[in-house]
Nucleic acid binder design. Structure first.
Length: 201
DNA sequence: AAACTCATCAACCGCAAATGC
DNA sequence: AGCATTTGCGGTTGATGAGTT
C-alpha cells in the first residue's frame, strides 16, 4: 500500500543528513558482529535512528572495508567512458567492473567531470558543424542537423575518447591529492578499520 | 577581507524489481 | 495468486569547500 512506510521519513525519530562518527562506529561494529542483513531491522537492532536504506547506502558506499576512495585513475576513467558508451547510465553495472568503486561514486564522477568535458566537446563540435552548415547552407537546403544529439551513444564517444584522454593530464593530478583531501573531511577509513582491529569486535 | 560563483560529493527520494508470507 | 516488505537503482538536491572578483 503505502510504500513510504518503509521509508519512515515522516518519523521525527528518524535522523537524516550527514552521518556522525558515532553512527558510523555503531554500524561498523554491528555489521562486524552480526553481518549484513535486513537493513530495516538492522538499523533498529543496532540502535541507529536511521532508515534501513540510509544504513545500507552508508555501508555500501563508505564503510565497507573494500571501498576505494578518490584516485580515479586514467585507466578507470577510460573504462568508465567505454562502459558508459556501452550501457549508458547503468551505474551499478559499470561499478561492478571497477573493483572498490561504488555506483554513487562513478555516477558523481561522471556527472561532474566527464559529462562536463563531453558537453564542451559537443559544443565545440556543434560550433564547427554550424560553421560548416552555414557554409553548406548557401548551397543546400538540407535541415536534418536540427535534431539535437540525445544523451549517450557509442558513436558519439568515438571521437571524444581520444581528445578527452589526452587532455587528461590535468585530472590525474587532482586525483592524486583527492584521496587525502577526501579523507580530510572527517577521518580516514583506515583509522576506522584500525580502530576496529583495536576493538577486536 | 568579504561576497559571490562554481564544483564536488554525500545523502535523500521515488520507483521498480525481488522476495517473503 | 496477491499483498506487504525489502532491496537496489538512478536521478536529484543541498551542504560545503575552493576559487574568483
Amino acid at each position: 500500500m503505502d510504500k513510504k512506510q518503509c521509508n519512515t521519513s515522516q518519523d521525527p525519530e528518524v535522523r537524516k543528513g550527514p552521518w556522525t562518527m558515532e553512527e558510523d562506529l555503531i554500524l561498523i561494529n554491528y555489521i562486524a558482529n552480526h553481518g549484513e542483513g535486513v537493513w530495516n531491522s538492522l538499523a533498529k537492532a543496532a540502535g541507529l535512528k536511521r532508515t534501513g536504506k540510509s544504513c545500507r547506502l552508508r555501508w555500501l558506499n563508505y564503510l565497507r572495508p573494500d571501498v576505494r576512495r578518490g584516485n580515479i585513475t586514467p585507466e578507470e576513467q577510460l573504462l568508465i567512458m567505454e562502459l558508459h558508451a556501452k550501457w549508458g547510465n547503468r551505474w551499478s553495472k559499470i561499478a561492478k567492473h571497477l573493483p572498490g568503486r561504488t555506483d554513487n561514486e562513478i555516477k558523481n564522477y561522471w556527472r561532474t567531470r566527464i559529462q562536463k568535458h563531453i558537453k564542451q566537446a559537443e559544443n565545440f563540435q556543434q560550433q564547427s558543424n554550424s560553421e560548416i552548415n552555414d557554409h553548406q547552407a548557401s548551397t543546400s537546403q538540407v535541415s536534418t542537423m536540427a535534431e539535437p544529439v540525445e544523451t549517450y551513444s557509442s558513436p558519439c564517444y568515438q571521437g571524444m575518447l581520444e581528445p578527452f584522454s589526452t587532455q587528461f593530464p590535468t585530472i590525474p593530478d587532482q586525483s592524486s591529492c583527492c584521496s587525502n583531501d577526501n579523507n580530510n573531511n572527517y577521518w580516514s577509513m583506515e583509522d576506522f578499520w584500525s580502530m576496529q582491529l583495536l576493538n577486536g569486535d
